[in-house]
Design a protein around this nucleic acid. Sequence first.
RNA 1: GGCGCGGUACCCAAGUGGUAAGGGAGAGGUCUGCAAAACCUUUAUGCGCCGGUUCGAUCCCGGCCCGCGCCUCCA
Length: 492
Amino acid sequence: MTLRLFNTLTGQQDELKPSDGDTIRMYACGPTVYDFGHIGNFRTFLQVDVLRRFLLLTGHKLRHVMNITDVDDKIIRNATAAGIPISEYTPRFVEAFFEDLDSLRVQRPEVIARATEHIEKMVELVEKLSATGAAYRTEDGSWYFRLSAFPEYGKLSKKDLSGMEDGARVDVDEYEKDSARDFALWKAAKPGETAWDTRIGRGRPGWHIECSAMAMEYLGDSFDLHAGGEDLMFPHHENEIAQSESVTHKPFADHWMHVRFLLVDGRKMSKSEGNFYTLRDLLLKGFKASAIRFALISVPYRHQLNFTFEGLTDATNAIDRLRTFYQRITTGSFPAGENADLQTACKDAHSKYMEALANDLNTAEARAPIFDLVRAANTAIDQGKFSTRDRDAVLAVLQAFDAVFDVLQDCDAEPTQRALEWAKSSGRMDDVAPELVERQSMTDEMIESLIAERTQAKKQRNFARADQIRNELAEKGVVLEDSKDGVRWKRK
RNA sequence: GGCGCGGUACCCAAGUGGUAAGGGAGAGGUCUGCAAAACCUUUAUGCGCCGGUUCGAUCCCGGCCCGCGCCUCCA
């Protein structure tokens, strides 16, 4: 099955195929590690995760590279303010970033590349650009890319720069550039700043050259797909194309995928608007990592997603329905045999699900047949028309669903616990929802033991005691469900 | 100003030239010691507004209104 993915470069859906006939080589812009990631960042990483999981599900081999920008203006600014070198400033944010990815169950790319470990490759690129006249050095020792050397500039973002006048929106006085639109490849060291001594002088790389260098290092001159947030389309990706293709004279990436922004309450998220949330903020408010994942991927990547707390609650409840069902069929006992209607329903759901994802990763559409199947199966179970082979067929569909969505298993305690520990160690306990601490206080063993006591009480028809236990557990966020196959429980 | 996206039920959100998926919430019911879960019923003759094309438009075309994003660091 081939994915039809919208391609920013061509402006249409193109099939995504490995150009070498074997492995899809893709590059996705990673974080700049100057602070904790916010949910907007993670929407993009989650959508790329959906992409990679679907490609794996459809049997593709992947070589997915993600960069970590661990040197840039903001990092230098923050590190300077903290009075430490950037090599001491960035590691904790790198670590936090991966913790957050784990919380959201985002798979690791095959290659993770740090900018500061690829300086040599960047220098090489600047030298090559210089040799062809596409790069020039200014008096202060910085290097710039000469936009006029790349006539195709603007082909990705569909911008016509010929009508733009220098100085209109760009500060021409800051550096002695030939043209205001020329962008920095290499920034000369300022006193006290982190810098590398290289053949092109002492300084540090510009942001754009990092990605070109690392993409080429691990994927070659040309590769299949380049992904990132919509804001990166211009100028970042446009600049990557200009630099790279000026050196190689080959198409940089065949396919460009851009994830649209997440809005919060209808506005772009920003610190000044007061609608800015990190993943940790939400975990401490008591939202589950799985709900955040589900909410952020359920709106297809090509649409803006309006993030609200209500949306998170909806996602929580939707997951609950799925998990309850999953528990019901995995723990229940069913007669041997099969129900022809359900077998058909399973095939149907599976093909609709796959087709929806193959159609430009339409996650919203893909959810529908899964929920349809859940209803059909629940109905069959209620009517006693659900057999072991039906269970297996349904589980196979759920497996395909979870290969991409990954929300069926309840792994929510760990991220929450981690967030709590982080809050403790960083003095942020005031941000923690009070009921969260209480809920986390019950271990599985304590819960099981209370349930055993309640079952005993019920046998003796001591319903008062049984209900008391149930209420106690409910206060701790544990919900019980009596069934003919025993008591099932889950955390709210 | 330039480029682009969107406006579908109470909320979120798919979708299609032939009459509106799915999730959440609400209401009623079945089941159950009571719950929970599940299931059933119910919530848009309607898809921003006005024209046009068509046998037929929410879906195509034109205009208008509203919201949003990018054009500068930004996922």
